[in-house]
Computed example of a mutant assay.
Amino acid sequence: MASLPPYNVGDLGGGERRRAPAAARNVGAIGDVLAEWLPESGLVLEVASGTGEHALAFARRFPALEWQPSDPDPLALESIAAWGRDGPANLLAPVPLDAAAGAWPVERAAAVLNINMVHISPWAAALGLLDGAARALGPDGRLILYGPWFEEAVAPAPSNVAFDLDLKARDPRWGLRTVEAFAAEAATRGFSLAERRTMPANNLMLLFARPDR
């Protein structure tokens, strides 16, 4: 399906500052929800920052927060750093971070944000995201995700079904996940699904928090 976007930063062509068309389309809508869900202060760890366009935009929009971008891909880290040269002081230098790793370079955060990763990575990366968030977040910490999901009681959009099939054709370990399966794994790590927000283009934003906060 040639109309679907690429899934790796290396697919976005040359140049130091790589651009993902979806980032320009969704940055405003994601930012509006983040304005409600993010804490007033502290460090936000963005896991899988991709090109770095979101990190720059959100650091500018939320100047009271420290913004820590990360990615496991060296090409992504180069792009994030390039965009960051125009960034404010609260935008930190990117760090290499593999969500599935047993230890992360950032040990504490007020919030963990993950945009468009869970469906284009092995399930082990999603579980690693939960494990890392459980280590990094305190009692008031928030785990926030954005992307396309399936839901057991909701008929999937045809475009998401097609997207899921295309992803699995590219890599059988990829594919859209169900909110319920992810939430069940989150619960074993001390998180509950606090809010679900419908987003444009058949995406969702999910807010996970400690249930006793």
Rank of each mutant, 00 (worst) to 15 (best):
F182D: 02
A201D: 02
R173I: 01
I30N: 12
L207F: 07
A194V: 06
H54D: 12
R142A: 14
A194S: 08
L193A: 10
L145Y: 02
R60T: 08
P148R: 10
R210C: 07
V179D: 03
V161N: 08
A153M: 10
D140G: 13
I144H: 02
W149H: 06
A20G: 11
E16W: 00
E151W: 11
A64Q: 12
E185Y: 01
L4V: 05
R142M: 07
P88L: 08
L97M: 14
I30F: 06
V154T: 14
R85Q: 13
P72V: 13
G28S: 15
L145N: 02
A35L: 02
R60L: 13
G128L: 08
A110L: 10
E152W: 10
W67T: 10
W83I: 08
G15S: 12
R17A: 14
K168W: 11
L167A: 11
P211H: 01
A99K: 03
V161G: 02
S3E: 15
W174F: 14
P21W: 10
L145G: 00
P21N: 10
P88C: 15
A109H: 01
E151P: 02
D11M: 02
A99E: 01
A110V: 07
L65R: 06
R85V: 07
R177H: 11
G138D: 08
A89M: 07
N114P: 00
F58K: 01
F150T: 03
R25P: 01
T188D: 13
M1Y: 04
S70M: 05
M1L: 03
F182K: 00
L145M: 07
F208M: 09
R25Y: 08
L38R: 04
L75C: 09
G87T: 03
A64R: 12
P5L: 06
V33H: 00
A103L: 08
W123M: 05
V33I: 11
F182H: 03
L65K: 05
A23G: 08
A57N: 04
E53L: 15
R18A: 13
D32K: 12
I30Y: 03
A100L: 04
A89G: 11
R196D: 06
N90D: 07
A201L: 00
G87C: 04
A35N: 06
L92K: 15
T51R: 00
P96Q: 12
G128W: 00
P158A: 14
M199R: 11
D11R: 00
H54P: 09
R173T: 14
S70L: 02
E46Y: 03
P69G: 05
G175S: 13
A24L: 13
G52P: 09
E107A: 15
A35M: 09
D32S: 14
T178V: 01
L91C: 05
V44F: 01
P69L: 09
W67P: 14
A93C: 04
A125V: 15
A101P: 01
A89L: 06
G28R: 15
W83N: 09
G42M: 07
S121H: 11
A55T: 09
P105V: 13
P105M: 04
A99I: 03
G147T: 07
R197F: 00
L56K: 04
R197H: 02
P96A: 14
